[in-house]
Nucleic acid binder design. Structure first.
Ligand SMILES: [Mn+2]
Ligand SMILES: [Mn+2]
Ligand SMILES: [Zn+2]
Ligand SMILES: [Zn+2]
Lengths: 141, 141
DNA sequence: ATTAATTTGCAAGAAATGTGCAAAAAGTTC
DNA sequence: GAACTTTTTGCACATTTCTTGCAAATTAAT
């Protein structure tokens, strides 16, 4: 029942290469969403990948195959995470730690208003910003 | 009672220059948020500004003076709008038309969940994506 | 009108992301 | 498993958004 990167690649008809497999493993294993450059740094450190383009291209493939999902934070940088159901995130404005919030009753809250504007709702993006426990209790800076 | 660009500049101690005044006027007059480049195109067309840097620097100044507010859409591009109370936006995924939704009961909906994660909520960003009336009825691609 | 402070234009630089192409690796066929 | 086909990687370079240094021009202050 554990999620296996190789199985997913096979299922989606994607060839198994060192960088690709590892990128997927990282996204499967990580609880919080990662930026392309964060993913790359890990691969580079492990000597498994020498180029950011490889990471971008694989992330793009994974998105197309709907293996992962992405969203852009307010800093303008895209984050990628293994595909989960619809949910949102809370980001620490100080240390950038990010958590997933596994709930959402937003649609119904706004549904009427959106239709009043003549729009047919398709999706939405919601991120919370705040201070994590560590950062809100830290006395320094 | 009408909002006047010159008054605002004076109030905030910002000098009155051609590009600056016009940028502010545009943001005051426009119902939907604009990107820096959208603002620049207007000024350029009117022959009032020859450089995007000028637009970026003025938008930055306006943000610091809290005359305007900005947010980054999922395309990674920042939008700027004359400062209003807290609210959200609905974006047409086809024609990119954007509207403001002047309501928000999101905080209370998520407050408990956020605190459960050990975060102290500070702010949030929420954008809806959908199809505007024109785009959802248009038969052509 | 002179002087001092600010802003503009332009060129150049960052940072995130995308692309063309040849070499390398993976997948396929016999 | 060698030969062939397809895909991916690495690298160099392009793009886009946004930033910065600096001198010339403009605005504000005296
Ligand atoms: Mn998540
Ligand atoms: Mn708005
Ligand atoms: Zn934190
Ligand atoms: Zn539309």
């Amino acid at each position: 029942m554990k999620i296996n990167a190789l199985d997913i690649l096979k299922e989606k008809g994607l060839s198994n290469t060192g960088p690709r497999k590892r990128i997927l493993e990282i996204l499967i294993g990580d609880q919080a969403p990662l930026s392309a450059s964060e993913v790359f740094k890990k691969l580079e450190f492990e000597g498994l990948c020498h180029n950011e383009s490889t990471v971008y291209r694989n992330l793009q493939k994974f998105l197309e195959a709907e293996i992962i999902q992405s969203f852009t934070l307010n800093d303008g940088i895209a984050r990628f995470e293994f595909k989960k159901g619809h949910h949102h995130h809370i980001v620490c404005i100080k240390c950038k730690k990010m958590d997933c919030l596994n709930l959402c009753q937003v649609e119904k809250l706004f549904d009427e208003a959106i239709k009043k504007h003549g729009f047919m709702p398709v999706s939405h993006h919601l991120e919370f910003y705040g201070l994590c426990k560590g950062c809100s209790t830290s006395p320094l800076k």
